[in-house]
């Protein structure tokens, strides 16, 4: 009986101590704001495209951090971003339902543009320049390809073009472990040119 009592008391005392330490630690190391939101936000591609159903990446990050949204709604981020977020949140990964399209760029056909500035207002990253009654132009280096400018255009003069692949940005693929393809490719090429 005394043994049981001793065990209970000592464990109880330990639990109390641990509780106090934790409580103190929470006060001392308290962090303002939710660092989770910023962490998630930094993983998102910042296209601000709204395909997740939230008006921008930060709102979606907020929703994920508060548990209001699933981790798999970022379409342009794809599987990689989903896995990162799931890992951070400590939840099971979920397949991203929509397949991301190839990276796109908006392009204004300037001779058709009436200078209404509606696309400029729609662009979430201020990547379209122009003044009322003047042609508008997309700054190629800043366009995230979110397509939010296409809908508002009253004369449908905005095209979404596939982002051109740059020689400088070409990256080596993983090796083809079969390797026997060396011969096939050459032969195929000759057939094509003959």
């Amino acid at each position: 009986m005394t043994h049981l009592l001793a065990a209970l008391l000592s464990l109880g005392a330990f639990a109390l101590l641990a509780g106090v330490v934790l409580a103190v630690a929470q006060r001392v190391f308290h962090i303002e704001g939710d660092p989770m939101v910023d962490k998630i936000d930094s993983m998102l591609p910042q296209t601000q495209c709204g395909q997740c159903g939230y008006p921008g990446c930060k709102p979606y990050a907020n929703a994920v951090a508060s548990g209001a949204a699933e981790v798999n709604h970022c379409v342009p981020g794809g599987e990689r971003v989903m896995l990162q977020i799931a890992d951070l949140m400590g939840v099971e990964p979920k397949a991203v339902e929509e397949e991301a399209a190839a990276p796109m760029l908006a392009f204004v056909r300037e001779d058709e543009c009436i200078g209404c500035t509606l696309c400029i207002k729609a662009c979430p990253v201020d990547a379209i320049v122009g003044a009322p009654k003047q042609y508008h132009t997309v700054i190629v280096d800043q366009c995230t390809g979110c397509m939010l400018c296409v809908e508002p255009c009253p004369v449908d003069c905005i095209d979404m073009l596939v982002k051109p692949e740059l020689l400088e940005h070409w990256a080596w693929p993983l090796p083809d472990t079969r390797r026997a393809a060396v011969g096939h490719e050459r032969r195929g090429h000759h057939a094509g040119h003959a």
């Binding site: 080596w172 693929p173 490719e185 195929g188």
Partner: peptide, 8 residues
């Protein structure tokens, strides 16, 4: 055609 084989 996108098959790239690295040196050596």
């Amino acid at each position: 055609m996108s098959l790239a084989i690295s040196s050596p």
